[in-house]
């Protein structure tokens, strides 16, 4: 298993105009493979989240190429990128971003509803997914009735319910204690074990580094190196 899931080539992205312009990504070449859990790490402001946004198709690039499952996101129209995200990408956010006025099952069914599923079908699948993440008895609870760990598991269920191939996670354990963090990572580890999936996690949380297949280190808008925590192998860019 060595198929490329995500590839960026010479990606540049900056913000602002004139003297206040800041180049956040500088000629970034990045790869993530199918069946792996890759962590993107580095100091604050190094461009991790911007790279994640570019890979997720939520942010366009100034220059360079972005391919996700062989689809050239940099060449697609906004509408096409939106459709691509709906079908292929699951999101897990640091602040969970669950809709507070919807209960768990409604929150989890959102990606399916976006794809046009009926409420009944979407809720059946959402209930099954909540069962998978251990929240089968809390499907009618609203987010504010759950702990942080439980909310993040609801967010994971939401990210997985439409069976996306790429899971994008932004600091998924930052707001969780060790126990809940470990539980969330076990679930994500299980997701990445499937050969047709790829999980990319941006994190500062060194408690979860051991779950990574590979870790890509960024510094000052560039990929510094990628290493394998188990084998210790390192490739510099």
């Amino acid at each position: 298993m060595n198929r490329i899931a995500v590839r960026t080539s010479c990606v540049c992205k900056g913000f602002g105009e004139g003297e206040s312009r800041t180049e956040v990504l500088k000629e970034v070449n990045f790869e993530a493979q199918m069946g792996e859990l890759l962590m993107l790490v580095g100091p604050s402001g190094c461009g991790k989240t911007t790279l994640l946004s570019v890979i997720a198709g939520t942010l366009g690039v100034d220059r360079g190429e972005v391919e996700v499952f062989d689809s050239p996101l940099h060449r697609l129209q906004t509408k096409e990128v939106t459709q691509f995200r709906a079908s292929n990408i699951g999101f897990i956010f640091q602040q969970y971003n669950l809709i507070p006025t919807l209960n768990c099952i409604e929150n989890v069914s959102v990606p399916l509803r976006i794809q046009g599923a009926t409420a009944a079908d979407a809720e059946d699948k959402a209930a099954a997914m909540l069962e998978t993440v251990g929240l089968g008895k809390r499907i009618r609870h609203r987010p504010n009735m759950l702990s942080g760990g439980q909310q993040q598991r609801v967010a994971i269920a939401r990210a997985l319910v439409h069976d996306p191939k790429l899971i994008i996670c932004d600091e998924p354990t930052a707001a969780l204690d060790s126990e809940n963090g470990a539980r969330v990572m076990e679930i994500l580890r299980g997701v990445a074990a499937r050969p047709d999936r790829c999980v990319i996690i941006v994190t500062h949380d060194n408690r979860i580094f051991r779950y990574a297949d590979r870790m890509t280190h960024m510094e000052d808008g560039r990929i510094h190196h990628t290493d394998n925590p188990e084998t210790g192998a390192m490739e510099r860019q």
Binding site: A56, T58, Q83, V110
Partner: peptide, 18 residues
């Protein structure tokens, strides 16, 4: 107040039209 939630929906693939 719902901008973050709407942003999440947009990220998940909800179009501007939806």
């Amino acid at each position: 107040e719902n901008l973050r939630n709407l942003g999440a929906l947009k990220a998940m693939g909800a179009s501007d039209r939806v």
